[in-house]
């Protein structure tokens, strides 16, 4: 019974109740962001970026598309915080407009991948057998393709629009969700408490919602967060290549594309959209990493990071 030295701790387990377990969900979530410095920095960054994307455009005095030929390539100043571009358009307004596009694409793509991938993984793992085998091999095939190349092909086939970007970006991350859910469901199905739920007469839906889902959600939450980050960069690189959203739609990738011709004359045109992109990705990655470490019992430490 005393298999390894770790058992000393489990022998001590019976009456040990970590205090944070008894907090409510909100307290726990709040506590998590307060305790983990990465999560806190990430969350602050993200809130700032979201505010900028959805409220910011209403606060700035310029329209993002409003040219001003007398004020082309103006360096950052009090009247134009991020300077102006080759048509004299205010860069701050354009970066803010790009932010909302970026978020719309990223959130849409990640949620779409989640909505397709998660049920796919759940259903095929539930059915099992040949259906599961074939689906898994298809997922392998998608994963074997470079994600960006796949997105390029799809966006070329479907034409540039926000919706086609959703599909193009989501497509290559569907297998990740399918696998996470499949793995978790298969794992949960084998757990005795699911069998025990059958034994007391729980219905299928109750088992799914009360027993399986709560245990599948945490790894999914991590994946969605990390996927936001990758979707932001994929969208930017597609638009940079001119394959994503085309003018007049403003996107960070498009801004960067414009900027590359004037790197020496007007470096701010690349710096500001680039920084916005980097900070957004950073915020998601920080949060995702922190959640993952928190959920992994091997790295979890009560009372913060070590």
């Amino acid at each position: 019974m005393n298999a390894n030295p770790m058992d000393v701790a489990s022998g001590a387990e019976p009456t040990a109740a970590p205090a944070w377990r008894q907090e409510t969900l909100t307290q726990r979530v709040a506590g998590f962001f307060l305790r983990d410095r990465r999560a806190m920095v990430g969350m602050i960054l993200l809130v700032v970026m979201l505010f900028a994307a959805f409220v910011g455009p209403r606060l700035v005095p310029y329209e993002p598309d409003q040219p001003n030929v007398r004020n082309r390539f103006a360096a950052p100043s009090w009247s134009h915080w991020m300077g102006t571009d080759r048509s004299g358009r205010d860069l701050l307004s354009r970066v803010l407009a790009g932010a909302s596009v970026s978020f719309r694409v990223a959130i849409g793509a990640a949620l779409l991948a989640l909505l397709i991938g998660a049920p796919l993984g759940a259903v095929t793992s539930y059915i099992g057998g040949l259906v599961d085998d074939v689906t898994q091999r298809c997922m392998d095939a998608i994963i074997a393709f470079p994600a960006r190349l796949l997105a390029i092909v799809l966006v070329v086939l479907m034409g540039p629009s926000v919706v086609s970007l959703w599909f193009a970006i989501a497509f290559s991350s569907i297998p990740r969700y399918a696998r996470i859910v499949r793995g978790s469901v298969l794992d949960q199905k084998e757990r005795e408490y699911v069998e025990a739920a059958h034994a007391i007469g729980e219905g299928r839906l109750a088992i799914l919602f009360l027993y399986i889902l709560p245990n599948v959600l945490p790894p999914l939450a991590v994946q969605v967060t990390l996927d936001f980050a990758s979707a932001v960069t994929v969208e930017a690189s597609l638009s940079f290549l001119g394959l994503g959203l085309v003018p007049p739609t403003i996107s960070w990738g498009g801004l960067l594309n414009d900027a590359q011709q004037w790197l020496e004359e007007a470096p701010w045109l690349a710096i500001f959209p680039g920084a916005a992109l980097a900070l957004t990705v950073l915020s998601f990655v920080l949060i995702g990493d922190a959640i993952r470490d928190h959920l992994d019992p091997r790295t979890r430490r009560r009372g913060g990071t070590r």
Partner: peptide
């Protein structure tokens, strides 16, 4: 002889000097 948490395994590992790094 002992149940979980009795220290029997830790005693054995002490003799072998194969204790967990925290011990």
């Amino acid at each position: 002889v002992g149940e979980s948490g009795s220290g029997k395994t830790v005693t054995a590992l002490s003799i072998m000097r194969l204790l967990d790094p925290r011990a």
